[in-house]
């Protein structure tokens, strides 16, 4: 939960508030870009942050900062992932840094092998904890599309896990 007063101060041009807001939002931005666009995560993080802070004054409701940041980050990460056409398997080195447990590494590897669109809905549901409706709003998609992507992701993960 980000303090709306902090967002308001940042929108008003308080640089210390901007810096503090950046620190608050960075972990979520990184989680999303690392999951949605692992092969271009650093570029996606930078571009997402630039988009967020360049357009911060357009956010009318400071209380919506998290949802708004999530949306911009996902849009940016997906755009870069598609541009790079890097939906192929990614080296598991980033996963190894996340958790030393072998099974978790395998799970994260399987996740990273999913197409970006499926990876995104899994990230929003399983990592960010959003409901299907919230994920649909974040992605500007019908709930049905989110559900079908989740189902396909689950089937792929199950298949990848068992083989």
């Amino acid at each position: 939960m980000v303090d709306p007063a902090l967002v308001g101060a940042a929108q008003a041009g308080d640089a210390l508030a901007l810096d503090e807001l950046l620190e608050e939002l960075l972990p979520m931005v990184r989680r999303l870009t690392t999951t949605v666009a692992p092969s271009v995560a650093e570029d996606a993080t930078q571009e997402a942050l630039l988009a967020i802070f360049r357009n911060l004054r357009e956010l009318r409701n400071p209380e919506a900062i998290v949802a708004w940041t999530r949306k911009l980050t996902i849009q940016t990460a997906l755009r870069l992932a598609r541009a790079r056409r890097r939906d192929e398997p990614v080296d598991s080195a980033p996963a190894s840094r996340i958790d030393p447990g072998e099974q978790l590494i395998e799970l994260v590897d399987a996740l990273q092998r999913l197409p970006a669109e499926q990876r995104t809905v899994v990230a929003l549901r399983a990592i960010e904890g959003l409901s299907e409706q919230e994920a649909a709003r974040a992605l500007d998609l019908p709930v049905g599309t989110v559900k079908s992507r989740l189902n396909r992701a689950r089937a792929s993960l199950r298949k990848g896990w068992l083989t």
Binding site: A10, G13, L22, F53
Partner: peptide, 17 residues
């Protein structure tokens, strides 16, 4: 220390000012 390359961080700050 900051979680983000300081040069990138400053460019982000500049985007908001």
């Amino acid at each position: 220390e900051i979680g983000l390359d300081p040069v990138v961080r400053l460019r982000v700050l500049a985007a908001a000012l």
